[in-house]
Each structure stands twice: as structure tokens, then as C-alpha cells.
Amino acid sequence: MQLNHAQRELTVKVVYYGPGLSGKTTNLQMIHARTASEGRGKLLTVETHDDRTLFFDLLPVFFHTKGGYTVKVKLFTVPGQVIHNATRRVVLQNADAVAFIADSRRSAGQENNQYWENLKANMRENGLNAAQVPIVIQFNKRDLPDSKTDAELEETRARGKEPVIGAVAIRGEGVLETLYAVIQLAYRKMDEQAGLSRNIGLSEAEFLKLVFARMDLDGTQVSSWLASGGGPG
């Protein structure tokens, strides 16, 4: 988080982390497609010839608050391939929250675990306290055969404190729900650290409403969460 009172600007950093080909870039593409151009920047992607992320993807979403602050939510993905660990660590620096995109297939279990450990290790290396940086787990590719069952997802949920969300990112399912969950936790962490509601008059409800103000929420749970102030967590 970068809070600049002089320029009245708040920058929030959310990082999509996870194994290669788990759908991190697809998540950003879907958010990009569902957001009106006035509320977001261009989607910056650098891919190799076989569509693998080479450095990172970046999608900025921005809005102005009632209190006169400009808020920029920068969504990043890390490159998933094993060899790009140094880039992953650079992108992860100073993240306010992390969306961990896991592949739902049973065959991917081991890789999910490896990247989970890798995330924790890189957080430590970056001086981020893994207990203080909120993480949301997205189980992507729910439509594929060999996916874990809902009951198994429940088991994963029960094993930790992170919210767990099922998704089929390629069809946009679960993408905005994941964004909602991760943004909500990011806000709560920043509010705890910097007193956003007290110091810049930005409440959780206003923050969430403005993030999603220019997004097409049709067919998602986000509208009802926004109305009730609830969420998946």
C-alpha cells in the first residue's frame, strides 16, 4: 500500500500467484473484459510465443472517493514457470493481498503445494509477514474432469483460514468473487495498518462499491455481497 496524503492518492497492490497454467492471466483478462474502460487502464501482458507469462501482467483499476482520494488498485500476476522465481519475488514485493490460483485437478495437487510453499518462502524473503498478508485461494478449472469435489474443497477450506472460491476463470465464473474476496481482505489489512476509514474517510463499503462500480456484475454473487456487506470469508 502506498498512501500519499499530499497527492491524495492510495495505491493498492494485489498479486495473483500460483503454478504455471493455473489461470492467473485468464483471471485478469476476465476482469479487464468486464470493466468499462473509464475505470481501468490497459491490460499489460508480456508473453512468450506459447502464451506463457514472461514477466508479469498488470491491470490497474482506479476510482475517486467521496473524500477526494484517487485510489488505484493494481492487479498483478506472477510468471508461473519454475525458472522465473526471481521475477515472482520482485512482483510480490509489498503486496497487500494475494489471490492464490490453484488448479482443481487432483493431478495438480503436488504442484499447488509446491507453489504454496514457494509463495510463503518468497514472502519471507521479501520481509512480508505471511500471517499478515491476506491470501484468498481460488480453485480454478472446476469444469475439468478429475477435479476435486465440493466436499474436498470444503476440506481444504477447513484446513486454514483463507477463503476458498471455486472458479472456471475461462468462462468468468468465480473471477469477480475472487477479486471481491481478496480486495475485501486487502482493505481490512490496510485499514488496520493505516486507519483508512478514520484518516481518509474511506469505508469498506465505499471501497468495495467503487472497485466494482464500473464492472459488469451480471451472474455473479458480488452484487448481493455488496448489498449485504458480506463476502465469502
Binding site: L58, F76, Q93, N94
Partner: peptide, 11 residues
């Protein structure tokens, strides 16, 4: 190693 590093260009 956080202290040794300047702010990333991404920030």
C-alpha cells in the same frame, strides 16, 4: 533482504 532493495519500478 527488504532493507537493501530500492522500491521496485512496479511501485
Amino acid at each position: 533482504r527488504l532493507e537493501q532493495r530500492p522500491l521496485s519500478v512496479l511501485e
